[in-house]
């Protein structure tokens, strides 16, 4: 997260700061996810054209592919766990080819895997190509309550700071305990979390004070107008929406197959 690697949200360019309006990206992300999830559970091939979206954004915006893939893989286990029940429960043979019988469960399992890859990639691409403050600004302009937006900003700001505190605690515990990988007992975990909580409460008090001395009156003001540029953001939205709708209505892989074989 905030520490290692390519600092995407700081790279100047089409998709980062000063790039496509975050509102456009949020809209396109939702449109994408709606189309992905709208396909039937046995659909595989028609999901494939949708990969163009994460792939092309990744390509244009310098998201490191390895990092993206790692994130995507981390999200897979739960989905695969649930998905693996499909072959178990859905044994109806959907088709036979070359002496091979494939059940509906296996097809829907592959479909779930594809959906998962697409959905996670979309989320990661959105997060990696949008500076968080601009994303928050966009969300506010899209009608998300101010208090939740401010909350997201504060949470994001102090995330790594408090995580480092926790890591230091765990390390200190490991140094005191015996064994190579000492386990934390519930009771000591509770007191560690308790300490962490007290420190967090102190931190909140100090932040509040530093807000007060700078004239805080209950409202967090931001001075950064977002400009929705139709020539850029409008085209971005229009292009992808059109693409997603086409993919939804037209069997692109089927057409492609037919075209290649001259049928």
């Amino acid at each position: 997260m905030p520490t290692s690697g390519c600092r995407l949200d700081e790279n100047p360019g089409f998709f980062s700061r000063g790039g496509v309006d975050p509102r456009a990206k949020v809209f396109v992300t939702f449109a994408f996810l709606l189309v992905v999830t709208s396909f039937g559970k046995y659909e595989i091939s028609r999901l494939t054209p949708l990969f163009l979206y994460p792939v092309s954004i990744t390509a244009v915006s310098c998201v490191p592919v390895a990092k993206l893939l790692r994130r995507v893989l981390v999200a897979l286990p739960f989905v695969l766990f649930v998905g693996l029940f499909n072959p178990l429960f859905d044994r109806q043979i959907l088709f036979k080819a070359w002496g091979l019988s494939i059940s509906g469960g296996w097809i829907s399992f592959v479909s779930i895997t594809f959906r998962s890859l697409l959905a996670v990639a979309a989320a990661v691409v959105l997060a990696m190509t949008t500076p968080f403050d601009r994303l928050c600004l966009g969300l506010e302009k899209m009608g998300v309550p101010r208090v939740l937006v401010t909350q997201l900003q504060f949470l994001y700001r102090y995330l790594s700071l408090l995580q480092e505190e926790a890591v230091r605690m765990v390390r200190a515990h490991a140094l005191r305990a015996r064994g190579n990988r000492p386990k934390i007992r519930v009771s000591s975990a509770a007191s560690m979390i308790g300490f962490l909580l007290l420190r967090s409460l102190d931190r909140a008090t100090r932040i509040y004070r530093s807000m007060l001395v700078r004239g805080f009156d209950g409202e967090v003001r931001l001075m950064k107008p977002l400009r929705f540029a139709w020539s850029r953001d409008g085209i971005f939205v229009a292009f992808w929406t059109l693409y997603f709708l086409t993919v939804r209505f037209v069997d692109v892989p089927g057409r492609l197959f037919g075209w290649v074989l001259g049928r």
Partner: peptide, 16 residues
């Protein structure tokens, strides 16, 4: 870290 609580440096300096 207690004094810089806004999303960016600009926002922090503009807060007051």
């Amino acid at each position: 870290d207690d004094q810089l609580f806004m999303p960016t440096v600009f926002d922090d300096v503009a807060f007051g």
